[in-house]
């Protein structure tokens, strides 16, 4: 079945460098540095990435960082909590706009 998202495309990610190799090289180097152990551990960074992957709803990133989180030693409970953090921020972001709705209603109401 034809689909916009093909799991096999994940392994073709590097092919995007064909159009702009220098930019890809810079992106790859920066990306690698971002996820290297720093003040945050690689495990913590992978959990953040998993949460962000859900927030931006990227299926490639969800596949990649589910595996990365497991390989960095996180368990399903921790990963589920990370997804809840993303969901809470997304939900909160929607809800807090309710204040704008109230302001707007107030403005046009009598």
């Amino acid at each position: 079945m034809e689909t916009y998202y093909n799991p096999e495309d994940l392994s073709k990610f590097a092919s995007i460098g064909e159009g702009a190799p220098e930019l890809w090289k810079k992106f790859s180097a920066w990306y690698g540095a971002v996820f290297a152990e720093g003040t945050l551990t690689e495990r913590e960074k992978a959990l953040i990435a998993l949460a962000v992957a859900h927030a931006v709803q990227c299926p490639y990133c969800i596949d990649a960082y589910t595996r990365t989180c497991l390989e960095k030693g996180s368990n399903r409970e921790q990963m589920t909590e990370a997804v809840h953090v993303a969901a809470a921020i997304k939900g909160g972001a929607a809800l807090v706009h309710g204040v704008q709705m109230k302001n707007s209603a107030e403005k046009i109401g009598i």
Binding site: L10, K12, F13, A14, F35, Y60
Partner: peptide, 13 residues
């Protein structure tokens, strides 16, 4: 997607 990029590079090498 670092994993994918690294995997692709490794596969080419």
């Amino acid at each position: 997607m670092k994993e994918a990029a690294a995997g692709e590079e490794a596969s080419m090498n």
